[in-house]
Simulated assay, not measured.
Amino acid sequence: MHYSYGAPVGIVWMTPATGMWGASAQSAQDRADKDRRWPAMLRKLRGLRKRGRRSIRIVDADCGAGELLIHAVRRAREMGFVAIEGRGIDADPRLIASACRAAARQSDPAIGLVFEQGDPDEAMREEAEYPADLLLCPASDTGTRKRAALARTAADTVLWDRKAQRERERS
């Protein structure tokens, strides 16, 4: 796995969660806690820590404004991970800009976090070279089998956003 301890271009450093957050940060945390993937993500983080892991790499291939990924890396830090790498990808440049602004309000040398505008499938292809520990993956209304196979090569554990897929099917 690839763990970067330097600060590559585009990395935003973050601090662990504290009680000093503003109202908007707290509401972002609340939304992240309500994500259906959150319990499985916590189990994965706890399991890795129980096995002695001190570093983790998390990729969110449809990160939106980055709330879930930011919350996940903060929680990983609180659990005792000392090298945390997070990558968020989304096609919407406005959401990526929002994610970067949210992350820039914090700093912690143990957490490297980058948000990029791009295609989720292309990001998963890139991740296959050095698979992440955890991939938050968008469900696809077309080509689900192809995306599932691609996701399995990009990470040890894949958590699918099935709720978003159901919402697209209803529209």
Rank of each mutant, 00 (worst) to 15 (best):
D30S: 12
D30F: 12
R31S: 09
R31I: 09
A32V: 12
D33P: 00
K34T: 10
K34E: 08
K34Q: 15
D35C: 04
D35L: 05
R36C: 11
R36E: 13
R37G: 15
W38K: 08
W38R: 14
W38G: 05
W38T: 13
W38A: 12
P39M: 02
P39R: 09
K44P: 00
L45N: 05
R46W: 01
G47P: 04
K50R: 13
G52T: 07
R53T: 10
R53E: 14
S55T: 15
R57S: 08
R57G: 00
I58V: 15
D60Q: 06
D60R: 00
D60C: 05
A61M: 02
A61R: 06
D62Y: 03
D62P: 00
C63G: 06
A65M: 04
G66R: 03
E67N: 12
L69F: 01
V73L: 10
R74C: 02
R74I: 04
A76T: 00
E78N: 00
M79D: 08
M79T: 01
G80W: 06
G80A: 08
F81P: 09
V82R: 07
V82P: 00
A83M: 12
A83P: 00
A83F: 02
I84M: 00
I84G: 04
I84N: 01
I84L: 05
E85F: 07
G86W: 03
G86C: 01
G86A: 01
R87W: 11
G88D: 03
G88V: 03
I89C: 02
D90M: 01
D90W: 05
D90H: 02
D92S: 06
P93W: 07
R94M: 12
L95P: 00
L95E: 11
S98N: 13
A99M: 11
R101W: 11
R101A: 15
A103M: 03
D108S: 14
D108T: 11
P109Q: 14
A110V: 12
I111C: 03
I111G: 00
L113H: 11
V114R: 15
F115E: 03
F115K: 02
D119G: 08
E122C: 03
E122A: 14
M124H: 09
M124K: 08
R125E: 15
R125M: 11
Y130A: 15
Y130T: 15
Y130D: 15
P131Y: 04
A132L: 04
D133V: 11
L134Q: 09
L134M: 10
L134V: 15
L135Y: 05
L136H: 06
C137Q: 06
C137I: 06
A139F: 05
S140V: 10
S140D: 04
S140G: 11
D141H: 14
D141N: 08
D141R: 14
D141G: 13
T142D: 08
T142C: 13
G143I: 04
T144K: 12
R145G: 15
R145H: 12
R145C: 11
K146H: 10
K146M: 11
R147I: 05
A148I: 09
A148N: 08
A148T: 14
A149M: 12
A149S: 14
A149V: 10
L150S: 06
A151H: 12
T153V: 03
A155K: 09
D156L: 10
D156C: 13
D156P: 00
T157S: 04
T157L: 01
T157Q: 09
V158H: 09
